[in-house]
Nucleic acid binder design. Structure first.
Ligand SMILES: [Mn+2]
Ligand SMILES: [Mn+2]
Ligand SMILES: [Zn+2]
Ligand SMILES: [Zn+2]
Lengths: 157, 157
DNA sequence: GCTATAAATGGAAATGATTTTCATTAACAG
DNA sequence: CTGTTAATGAAAATCATTTCCATTTATAGC
């Protein structure tokens, strides 16, 4: 049921149809959950939220939909090292601004950060350009994660 | 049996004992395989190489040893998205110079690169410093991966 | 070198996230 | 409205990694 607001079809409908995919209730609800997410969700997390409103939708559908979304580039899939993948919308929510991660190796807490140092983005582009040329690689995306000890874990040691 | 060359105990023996770990044949062989590796090895890859010379050593030991090595920071554990972890020595081989990765999202090929743009390292340090201060995070490591289409996969499309 | 003790090990079984299978349902072009 | 085919759910299968536990081994102290 979540149709955004009232202005007709939601933003991703076009892209979905363009790829030959059908619009289903399951997919709408999953996108809706991802849009409203306020943290990095696992497939199971998403399943539980979806299940609360639509108990008929199974976990398999969650996995299948996420795979499509990741392949279409609408969703990012991350590995934070705890054995389950995490998903995050790539566009369309405030969560989806491009950002990097700070991961606590002790408690696995993950901090998003978007406040890049001014030069950071520029250098990133320069680096991508250099690599792209040198290795004849078409770079479409990047993953940058810093590991260490968070605030709280530092105190406990 | 691989004892490096002849100059007494191998470089990592001290660190192992320092952490209260015992030096065992299994651990020696695993480190030896990692030292000689010419690519990113999975636990199973390592097991097969180890098994060729020492059939008595089990896969469980490989996993257990790798976990210790990763925790000690002697080995890096990576996720390249194919469902199995990859391991790479952090010091002691030519493979172990700090480097970043270029990953083909189509064929999963992984290119190591160490030829950082001059500014890259400096900016990385600046960024780490900034994040460290702002989030009160002690940064010990980073992971940088660029995703895209490799040379060969580009041609096929 | 010999011994006692706790760490390390191997193999089998368990785990748990993700994928596959297959019979059924639903989206949507015409 | 209907036929075609994609999408789905439930259950079973996969498969990398972990856990269990009885046995072996490294090594500190004699
Ligand atoms: Mn994030
Ligand atoms: Mn590498
Ligand atoms: Zn922490
Ligand atoms: Zn490729």
């Amino acid at each position: 049921m979540p149709r955004g607001n009232g202005q007709g079809p939601v933003w991703w409908h076009g892209r979905f149809k363009g790829c030959g995919y059908r619009i289903t209730v399951g997919r709408e609800v999953i996108l809706d959950v991802l849009t409203k997410a306020d943290r990095h969700l696992s497939a199971e997390d998403i399943y539980m939220k979806v299940h609360a409103a639509y108990p008929a939708i199974g976990l398999t559908t969650i996995y299948r939909t996420l795979e499509i979304l990741v392949n279409m580039g609408l969703v990012f899939k991350f590995d934070f090292g705890d054995g389950r993948a995490r998903y995050e919308l790539a566009e369309g929510s405030n969560r989806s601004t491009h950002h990097h991660h700070l991961i606590c190796t002790n408690c696995k807490r993950v901090v998003d950060y978007t406040d890049f140092i001014d030069d950071e983005i520029e250098l990133l582009h320069k680096t991508e350009k250099g690599l792209s040329d040198k290795y004849n690689f078409t770079i479409t995306n990047h993953l940058i994660q810093f590991y260490g000890l968070c605030d709280k874990c530092k105190k406990r040691k």
